[in-house]
Computed example of a mutant assay.
Amino acid sequence: MTTSLADDFETHRPRLFGLAYRMLGSAADAEDTVQDAYLRFSGADHAAVERPGAWLAKVVTNLCLNRLASARARREQYAGPWLPEPVITSDGTLGPLESAEQRDAVSLALLVLLERLTPTERAVYVLREAFAYGHREIAGVLELSEANCRQLYRRAVQRVAAPEVRFKAAPEQQAGLVESFLTAAREGDLAGLESLFSAEVTWWSDGGGKVSAARRPIEGREKVLRFLAGLLGRHASGDVDFAVAEVNGHAALVARADDRLLSVVTFEFHEGVCTEVRAVVNPDKLEFAGRQLARV
């Protein structure tokens, strides 16, 4: 590939990564997909590629559809709950997140909901919601009829419909609540932690069988507090550094030891209390975010 064509590809790389990540929920797979697209672009007849951005988006979308087909079978064998890979977003990795809608569109909560969709429904939803593609453009990418794409989009929106508690806290409020959680956790203040949780809070842990983690969701405030008390006891020596970072568009808790990322914990808040906690501790899923934090 000539220098100019390589440079042309690099201008599209961030957008392509954002598309692949939203499609796959995996930063590692998104990187691999973008690299595959690069190889295809380098071998293409460039005289026939009138709009490189559109051509590459189509290639990446179809590569993601292939990956999703095999990923579903792997996830059925996954040890414990499956959560998406977290991404630090304060560095613009997933593009500008200037509105609540943009932040919500990359949240772990929404990415979990996208797992309800078929691969094609997910492609239609992501292209429409995250990249503002028209139905005619989507039809061209997926080689489907425009009417079919509209139907797939309506179905996807209905299937992604979430409980009314979703995405309610403003960014500043959420950051303050995560800071309060961190302060209470550092001080071993279980009463303070109790005040932050709703009675029906659920804690999800994704260890993937690689590290110790709850294999089932922990439901209810009392059980979550007992679980947290055990975690705090194991980290009482102070060898773990906790901090607040922007992850997938929202304030989250990151834990590191010896410059190694141990966990990323995201929260959903509604009316000042936490209703959902998602903790990613699978080391394979923390590699991308760990590299991001190492560059800070």
Rank of each mutant, 00 (worst) to 15 (best):
Glu246Tyr: 04
Ser263Tyr: 04
Arg234Gly: 06
Ser237Gly: 07
Ala252Asp: 04
Gly272Ile: 01
Ala236Thr: 03
Glu246Ile: 11
Leu262Glu: 02
Leu231Pro: 00
Phe227Gly: 01
Val277Met: 07
Ala252Cys: 05
Gly238Pro: 11
Val277Lys: 00
Arg226Asp: 09
Val247Phe: 01
Gly249Thr: 04
Leu261Ala: 06
Ala251Gln: 02
Arg226Asn: 12
Asp259Thr: 03
Leu261Ile: 03
Leu262Trp: 01
Gly230Tyr: 06
Glu268Met: 12
Phe269Met: 13
Gly238Trp: 09
Val265Tyr: 00
Asp259Val: 02
Arg278Met: 01
Arg256His: 10
Thr266His: 04
Cys274Tyr: 06
Phe227Tyr: 12
Phe267Ala: 08
Leu253Val: 01
Ala243Phe: 06
Asp259Ile: 01
His235Lys: 03
Asp258Arg: 12
Gly249Val: 03
Thr266Leu: 05
Val244Arg: 04
Gly238Phe: 09
Ala245Lys: 15
Leu262Ser: 06
Leu231Cys: 10
Gly230Trp: 10
Asp239Ser: 12
Ala243Tyr: 08
Phe267Thr: 01
Arg260Gly: 00
Arg260Gln: 15
Arg226Trp: 00
Leu253His: 09
Val247Glu: 06
Leu232Thr: 08
Glu246Trp: 11
Glu271Arg: 15
Thr266Met: 04
Asp241Ser: 09
Glu268Gly: 10
Ala255Met: 14
Val247Ile: 15
Asp259Lys: 10
Arg226Gln: 15
Ala229Lys: 13
Gly238Lys: 07
Arg234Tyr: 07
Val247His: 02
His250Arg: 15
Glu271Ala: 14
Asn248Glu: 12
Phe242Lys: 05
Cys274Glu: 04
Leu231Thr: 11
Asp239Thr: 13
Gly272Asp: 12
Asn248Trp: 04
Asp258His: 14
Ala257Gly: 14
Phe242Asn: 10
Val247Gly: 06
Leu231Phe: 09
Ala255Asp: 13
Ala229Ile: 01
Ala229His: 09
Val264Arg: 08
Val277Arg: 02
Phe267His: 03
Gly249Asn: 11
Arg278Pro: 01
Ala229Tyr: 03
Val264Asp: 03
Thr266Asp: 06
Phe269Gln: 09
Phe269Ile: 08
Thr275Val: 15
Ala243Asp: 13
Arg226Pro: 00
Ser237Val: 02
Val265Asp: 09
Val254His: 01
Asp239Ala: 13
Ala229Arg: 14
Leu228Asp: 00
Ser263Asn: 10
Asp241His: 14
Ala252Ile: 05
Asn248Gly: 12
Leu253Ile: 07
Phe269Glu: 06
Ala243Lys: 05
Gly272Lys: 03
Gly233Phe: 12
Thr275Gln: 02
Val247Asn: 02
His270Asp: 15
Ala251Phe: 02
Ser237Gln: 08
Phe242Tyr: 15
Ser237Cys: 01
Ala243Asn: 11
Asn248Lys: 07
Ala251Pro: 00
Phe242Pro: 05
Asp259Gln: 13
Thr275Met: 03
Arg256Leu: 15
Ala243Gln: 15
Ser237Asn: 14
Glu271Leu: 13
His250Glu: 13
Val265Leu: 12
Val240Pro: 09
Ala257Asn: 04
Gly230Lys: 11
Ala236Arg: 10
Cys274Gly: 11
Glu268Ile: 03
Ala257Cys: 13
Arg234Val: 07
Thr275Cys: 05
Val265Glu: 11
Phe242Val: 07
Leu253Pro: 01
Gly238Ser: 06
Glu276Leu: 12
Ala229Gly: 08
Glu268His: 10
Arg260Val: 14
Asn248Thr: 12
Arg260Cys: 00
Gly238Ala: 07
Val244Tyr: 07
